[in-house]
């Protein structure tokens, strides 16, 4: 098995730190502790691509070169980072011209990139490499009775479907089912959350958020499980604002490794459960009381 270099990305050091905490805890509990890529830099996200294409590719490629130096693949939990790094990897392989330009930039700082790095996602590693069976065996506290809406967001399955179905992804569903939780049918699985429009054009962004939350509740979900820090932010922190306009009971938004971690018996504090603005405690306590 090739070594994995963990690339948290900027959001996971900031507003999305619960994703980082819970992911590290889950991988450690499964006996595969994460090792962070040394001195990684911002992937550029959607913003840098809106300004300068060649610089955006160069920026992302430094991370590929650093991973290649460590003879590792990149493990990338954030949707935006995942796509940017995968897009860069593909573009440098397909375009000789861009490949040369980027290598010229890497030469300036003594790095090389020869196209040997793959971009991996925790969902892929957990379901394919570690395996759902092994996770099922590790479950100590089955989450029986918890109804979860699985929300994947956009960029992990679009435009490239690398390890999951583009229209109806299943990897997170499999992991959630392994915890004993009930996965509700959620047709908005891969619909856009509005991304940064919630900040730049709130009227537009917040309406997209509302539809995702409302649909999850209409489908009977107690919580939503997400895999992207921007999705989590949008769905979680704007609920009180939306409640001024819409009839919308609170629904906690958890990162999938937080749910997985609870089932593995990891204490809630170590999973950043209390970093949710809409507290997950009432739902979790109600479930535990029911199951007892």
């Amino acid at each position: 098995m090739k070594k994995l270099a963990y690339y948290p990305g900027c959001s996971l050091t900031g507003t999305g730190r619960a994703y980082d905490e819970s992911l590290r805890a889950v991988f450690a509990a499964l006996g595969e502790p994460l090792e962070e890529l040394d001195d990684w830099n911002c992937c550029g996200a959607t913003s840098y691509m809106s300004i300068d294409k060649a610089k955006a590719y160069a920026l992302a490629s430094r991370n590929l070169a650093l991973a290649e130096r460590e003879e590792a693949d990149l493990l990338t939990p954030c949707n935006a980072c995942y796509l940017v790094l995968e897009k860069t990897r593909r573009h440098l392989a397909d375009s000789a011209e861009m490949g040369q330009r980027v290598q010229h930039a890497l030469d300036a700082i003594g790095l090389r990139y020869e196209g040997k790095v793959r971009i991996r996602h925790p969902l892929e590693i957990l379901t394919r490499q570690i395996g759902v069976e092994r996770i099922k065996e590790a479950v100590k506290e089955p989450l029986k009775g918890l109804k979860v809406a699985p929300y994947y967001g956009c960029q992990v399955v679009r435009p490239y479907a690398t390890f999951d179905d583009q229209y109806d992804p299943q990897t997170m569903d499999q992991l959630l089912k392994a915890t004993g939780a009930k996965v509700v049918d959620y047709p908005f699985k891969t619909r856009c959350c509005g991304a940064s429009q919630t900040g730049t054009l709130p009227k537009v962004g917040l309406h997209l958020v509302y539809r995702l939350l409302k649909e999850a509740q209409d489908r009977g979900a107690d919580v939503m499980a997400v895999i992207c820090s921007l999705c989590q932010f949008n769905l979680d922190v704007y609920q009180s604002k939306l409640r001024r306009v819409y009839d919308l009971p609170p629904i906690p938004i958890l990162y999938f490794p937080q749910i997985l971690g609870l089932a593995l018996g990891i204490p809630a504090d170590e999973l950043g459960i209390d970093r949710c603005v809409v507290s997950a405690r009432p739902v979790l306590e109600r479930r535990a009381a029911h199951a007892a």
Partner: peptide, 28 residues
């Protein structure tokens, strides 16, 4: 309240490298 707001400035160790690399790409 939830420990998600931080005034720490995240920085890489090799800051100069990044600037040098981006200069080398040239303006597009």
């Amino acid at each position: 309240r939830t420990g998600r707001f931080s005034l720490r400035r995240e920085t890489i160790r090799h800051r100069g490298d990044l600037a040098r690399m981006l200069e080398a790409v040239g303006h597009d």
